[in-house]
Write a protein that binds this DNA or RNA. Structure first.
Length: 274
DNA sequence: AGCAGGACCTGATGGC
DNA sequence: TGCCATCAGGTCCTGC
């Protein structure tokens, strides 16, 4: 489940190796993964282009080419973007291969086949569903307590569903939503509009804190996540509630509970969170 | 308008 | 041991 910290870790890994590389051959083995343009068109027209920069917006990874086009990748839940200095034996879950002129390879790997790729000119950015409607980056100046309060005030949904809404804030997924709510002492099923200004302020701070820490530890690996070099993330041992139901709360010792909120498995401490 | 729930996928897990 | 049902999660789509 690559969320912001995982995608950011992949981004920084790719930034170290990809800029300056020229695409030699594109090999699409699962055409449905390519949403824009067609898989055949990507294979035909991407070769010859040179990577310029790697950026991230929410959970979307963006590989910019010197010609101005952008390869946008969303890993959904089990997707990986893996860099190899040389070709390998590719398993059945490797769906797209970008071979570079120096022999190195960027591989898109996804067990669940939910991940998606788009190759567009900047003018066609708006055709990538979900990308242009993203809310502010949580670690940017646009994500303030005032902004979060305004969003919460006018919605009827739970605070957890609000945090998961990418149009409200970009990049939070199930892990970090649960972790941020625990740190802020707020129950996930509370109506968003019921939170007071002090609670909103604590939550905004917790979101930033947990994301910064998770980026520092290179993300969370539960099972599938790997960074661009195949390495697991190190934040799992710092999780306080996510997938810790039945275990003791690190804060108060009470038992962590699991429920469903907004259709998602949700973990919280009934003693610390109100 | 805005939210809840199903669909998309496959592998891991648990019950019988 | 094997089979089946269930669960996991991000986002789009449908329906209320």
């Amino acid at each position: 489940m690559p969320e912001l910290p995982e995608v950011e870790t992949i981004r920084s890994g790719l930034e170290r190796v990809l800029p300056g590389k020229k695409v030699a051959v594109v090999e699409v083995r699962y055409p449905q993964a390519v949403k824009i343009p067609t898989a055949a068109e990507l294979e035909e027209k991407l070769p010859g282009r040179t990577v310029a920069a790697i950026k991230r917006r929410g959970k979307y990874l963006q590989i910019f080419f010197a010609c101005g086009t952008v390869l946008v990748v969303h890993l959904r839940m089990t997707g990986r973007l893996l860099y190899f200095p040389a070709p390998q034996e590719w398993d059945k879950h490797t769906h797209v291969l970008f071979h570079f002129c120096d022999g190195s390879v960027l591989a898109f790997h996804d067990v669940r086949k939910f991940g998606t790729l788009y190759w567009v000119t900047p003018e066609r950015f708006c055709e990538i569903h979900g990308l242009h409607t993203l809310g502010p980056e949580p670690l940017s100046a646009g994500f303030t307590a005032g902004y979060l309060q305004e969003q919460a005030r006018r919605r009827k949904t739970s605070i957890k569903a609000l945090l998961l809404n990418q149009q409200v804030v970009a990049g939070l997924g199930n892990i970090y939503a649960d972790e941020a709510l625990h740190r802020a002492g707020i129950r996930p099923d509370r109506p968003a509009a019921s939170l007071g200004a002090n609670e909103i302020a604590a939550l905004q701070q917790s979101v930033c804190d947990v994301l910064r820490e998770a980026v520092f530890y290179r993300g969370t690996t539960m099972s599938d996540y790997r960074d661009a070099t195949g390495r697991e993330g190190g934040f799992r041992e710092h999780l306080r509630v996510y997938r810790r139901s039945g275990k003791a709360c690190t804060n108060c010792g009470h038992t962590i509970m699991r429920t469903v909120v907004g259709g998602r498995g949700t973990h919280f401490c009934p003693h610390c969170q109100h």
